[in-house]
């Protein structure tokens, strides 16, 4: 690895930190949102990009985090850091439970099983409407979003706190991905993606490794959901819809599956695309879809995957 490559993560995080001082109010909020959603995408990338698990149900892990944190803060009166942990735990436990069943299948069956589980979660949220306020959602009160950290009172509604909290969580997810990718376990996960049979004949139980990957992926999705609830104060069933299972897949495909920064790039590009196009036309989703199809056809490895390929080609 070259020195420049080794310094990249620190440079990226420093750049993201500096960005908050140049962005206007509107983009500042959007960037915080992108960072939280990118955390979700990084989680998805561990399952899909690294391990090759094409889940169509990750919205349930995000929603588990969202509701886990939302309930803890709004109903349980728990401080935001603990609510964040509770939400993450909800995503983790749900992913573990779903994984125990869904990972008995693979390929298309896995896609369908995860889709069905997510749909069941969505319907469950709607079913307990009195509690979840599922269809219209609920807002987390200002008071429930204030907390003291090392003696300083912080307010999750404050833009600066929000941006840096989002950045810290993204850094955590990004760091976790990098550490995993360079680890013994990460190599096994990539091996499972490339050739499961061979991995088994090298003495690894693919099921256990997949379960680990899905659980970690679900925990990061839960973390993102919890952060979203606490930082943007809204909890609702829309985040459990199939759309929110498809989004992380698109973000990762767009940015580059199995790359460390692809999820951030994909989330950012797509967010900006939707944001700008929705200002121009009401049928913006169609244009977004079209743009995505073009991008994926022209850059099947995603933006960063294609960049990496070009660089590798120039080197050789």
């Amino acid at each position: 690895m070259t020195a420049a490559r080794r310094a990249l993560p620190a440079l990226v995080l420093a750049g993201l930190f500096a960005l908050q001082f140049v962005l206007g109010d509107y983009d500042h909020t959007n960037m915080a949102r992108i960072l939280v959603l990118a955390c979700f995408a990084v989680g998805y990338n561990i399952a899909f990009g690294m391990t090759g698990l094409l889940s169509l149900g990750h919205a349930m892990f995000f929603a588990a985090g969202l509701y886990g944190a939302g309930f803890s803060a709004e109903l349980g009166g728990v401080a935001p850091p603990a609510a964040l942990a509770a939400g993450t735990a909800c995503g983790l436990v749900l992913a573990l439970a779903v994984g125990l069943v869904a990972l008995r299948t693979s390929g298309v069956a896995f896609m369908i099983v995860t889709l069905m589980f997510a749909q069941a979660c969505f319907l469950t949220i709607l079913h307990f409407n009195e509690l979840t306020r599922g269809d219209e959602g609920f807002v987390i009160a200002e008071t429930a979003r204030r907390f003291a950290l090392a003696g300083v009172v912080l307010d999750a509604a404050d833009p600066t706190v929000r941006y840096n909290a989002a950045l810290a969580l993204f850094a955590l997810a990004y760091g976790a991905y990098l550490a995993l990718a360079r680890s013994r376990v990460g190599r096994v996960l990539v091996g499972i993606r490339e050739n499961e049979d061979r991995v088994r004949m090298l003495g690894y139980d693919p099921y256990r490794y997949r379960l680990f990957a899905l659980t970690l992926s679900g925990a990061l999705a839960g973390l993102a959901g919890a952060a979203y609830a606490l930082l943007f104060a809204y909890v609702g069933a829309t985040f459990a819809t199939t759309q929110y299972s498809i989004y992380p897949l698109l973000w990762v495909l767009l940015g580059g599956a199995g790359t460390a920064l692809g999820p951030l790039v994909g989330t950012g590009v797509m967010f900006v695309l939707v944001d700008r196009l929705s200002g121009i036309t009401s049928s913006y989703l169609m244009l977004v879809g079209l743009a995505l199809i073009l991008l994926v056809v022209l850059f099947p490895k995603g933006i960063l995957g294609t960049v990496g390929q070009r660089r590798a080609r120039n080197r050789s």
């Binding site: 990539v190 091996g191 490339e194 050739n195 049979d197 061979r198 088994r200 004949m201 090298l202 003495g203 690894y204 139980d205 693919p206």
Partner: peptide
């Protein structure tokens, strides 16, 4: 015993139809 456990016990298998990780 499942295959992966036998590998751990010391039974290694090389494939007749080559099965390496082509992307690695």
């Amino acid at each position: 015993l499942p295959a992966w456990r036998r590998v751990r016990l010391g039974i290694a298998y090389t494939f007749q139809i080559t099965s390496v990780f082509s992307g690695l």
